[in-house]
């Protein structure tokens, strides 16, 4: 077949597209299993009852979440059903309050506020917000901040009050804790580990 003829390239376009679509479908089936709750990269929602860390893994050569021992949230242990209900509510809060148009989740969204992927692990909660709010625990400080952010400013770019109820704020805190346990292939790098590793 002559390469000057459209038919040659039509065949090329159809076959290339078909092959790529088939490969994408297979990869998507495989990825869907990995990203499902309880899959290889995304933990169960009940991970909110555990300690979560973020360490450099020398074999994978990237930062990975480390799930530790028990660490109840708001002094409570949630079963999978309760945790799921909490997450459903949190995601509705996140969508209805348009969080993604200031912040990023896994680096996706807007860049006016900080990335929230590993926000639960941010040392600022202990170093800045707990003294500022007078809260005894990190999660309490987070709830107090979320319910009235302008009251606890850290710099001139402030977060507005989005009128979250206490239950809404608690759900969002749980969501951020769960999200910090998702294996994101090392994103963001060096989180909260300034100068501690290569």
């Amino acid at each position: 077949m002559d390469i000057q003829e459209p038919g040659f390239w039509r065949a090329g376009a159809i076959s290339t597209t078909a092959v790529m679509i088939v490969v994408l479908i297979f990869l998507s089936i495989n990825s869907s299993q990995a990203i499902a709750v309880g899959g290889s990269h995304v933990p169960d929602y009940s991970v909110i009852n555990r300690q979560i860390g973020y360490r450099y893994d020398w074999t994978r050569r990237e930062d990975v979440p480390v799930i530790g021992g028990p660490q109840p949230l708001f002094g409570k242990v949630y079963n999978e059903g309760q945790a799921t209900a909490l997450m459903n509510r949190a995601k509705l809060v996140i969508q209805s309050r348009n969080c993604i148009n200031c912040h990023t989740f896994f680096g996706n969204g807007a860049y006016y506020g900080p990335d929230l992927t590993k926000s639960w692990l941010d040392p600022a909660w202990h170093q800045i917000f707990m003294p500022m709010t007078g809260a005894k625990t990190q999660e309490e400080a987070m709830v107090m901040f979320l319910m009235d952010p302008p009251k606890y400013p850290t710099w001139d770019r402030r977060m507005p009050n989005l009128h979250l109820s206490e239950q809404d704020a608690q759900a969002v805190v749980a969501y951020l804790k769960w999200m910090s346990a998702v294996d994101t292939n090392g994103f963001p790098a060096n989180f909260g580990m300034q100068g501690e590793k290569p």
Binding site: P114, N190, G192
Partner: peptide
């Protein structure tokens, strides 16, 4: 390291 303070 991408924390709030680093972002600020």
């Amino acid at each position: 390291g991408s924390t709030l303070m680093a972002f600020t």
